[in-house]
Design a protein around this nucleic acid. Structure first.
Lengths: 215, 215
DNA sequence: TCACTAAGTTGTCATTTGATTACTTATCGT
DNA sequence: ACGATAAGTAATCAAATGACAACTTAGTGA
């Protein structure tokens, strides 16, 4: 009645590594990088020694997890979602709902854990965040406000902060969901829509104000 | 030339416990709850065994740290800051700058670490957050929008989310500062002021919209 | 002053944990 | 069919770690 003693599959090294990395990612995300190698192996149904056949140390495994989840190239949302014909807030919501969907519970928790432990992912992430999210948003605001586009006039630090504000508000809802585990009486799409409305109205005014005041 | 071998002070139990809790808080905030009891003792300049004279286990010490930092009663900002005569955005900034000043690096990191590890501080925090920050903000918005006050008309979930939005945006700047450790080209008071401007304009419109639409 | 109390230390134990070595066997090309 | 290759395991080591018992001594009150 114990285990069916499944005839454990043997995988090519490259495939096994991916299985180990994904299994470790799940465990680290949930319980932290302090999870023991034995516990990792147990959850993945392999022996502890196998980990050391594929990774020289536990730290190397952690690095592999972070590499795969955060540094491997992946695509972003379509910036053209911001170009459409409708109202600005609707376009912002359509654009940013993509971000909320991509940010999985595991990734958010891993990102925070790694950051707390001094692995500086955010600095390596910055250019991608700028390119994929912040600049498209600022471009849309500029257009809507009838201001020069991004190529014509460089983005100031205060302007970038303006874009980060929406981003931060959305990240915080993800933290509430995946870290704080609070109940949500309002659905996520509704929250994104609400924030997009507030932001579209307020940010447009601020964008005009900044440019009128010469930053 | 080594240590002056200071004649180590002997403290009454109650005082020593506070010293230990504060020392542990600093260590846990920086390096996580995985810090060993030996390392804790070393940093505080006492022996490892002393910890067990004052706390039955390492977990009990962790609990004491969280209790002292997050569950002990403390005051909030003055809600009257939101009543003043000036523009709404200036009043919101004055009110919320207090929050940014209270949230120390250690507390933010401890809070996140504990939350990631399943200690549900946010649920215990919720009522205090509502009372001290969210409801005062909503009250000010209601007044500014010429809507019924909070006693006259209950706060809907969507309305609460509206208040959480500003809160989240500000918490995210704290995370950038204390967890991500990014450089800030814009000063924190300036960021709070910027977010207050964006929010005051956008949230007021949203507040009116919600009430016109009957939520 | 002196003995009593409790604050603090030394030394140690049983486990846990990262890592490694020597062994077993599934899988595949010929 | 079969042997070479490499995927996987069992067993073990040394160091680290939470916890504790036995011992020392600073501080206080009579």
């Amino acid at each position: 009645m114990d285990e069916p003693a499944r005839p454990r599959r043997r995988l090519p090294s490259a495939e096994r590594q991916i299985v180990l990395i994904e299994g470790a990612a799940a465990a680290f995300a949930e319980d932290g990088f302090g999870v023991t190698t034995r516990e990792l192996a147990r959850r993945m149904g392999v022996t502890q020694a196998l980990l050391y056949k594929h990774f020289p140390s536990k730290d190397a495994l952690i690095d592999a997890v972070l590499e795969r989840r955060f540094l491997a190239e992946r695509s972003g949302p379509d910036p053209r979602l911001l170009d459409g014909p409708g109202a600005l807030d609707g376009r912002i919501a359509a654009f940013y709902i993509d971000f909320v969907n991509r940010a999985t519970r595991q990734n958010l928790r891993l990102f925070l854990r790694a950051s707390l432990d001094g692995v500086n992912l955010p600095v390596r992430y910055r250019s991608r965040l700028d390119q994929r999210y912040l600049m498209p948003i600022l471009g849309a605001l500029r257009r809507e406000a009838g201001l020069p586009n991004l190529e014509a006039l460089a983005v100031s630090p205060a302007e970038r902060e303006l874009a980060v504000m929406l981003h931060g508000a959305l990240v915080f809802t993800l933290i509430r969901r995946d870290v704080y585990r609070v109940a949500f009486p309002v659905s996520h799409p509704d929250i994104v829509a609400l924030q997009a409305r507030v932001y579209a109205a307020g940010a447009l005014a601020e964008m005009r104000r900044q440019h009128a005041a010469g930053d």
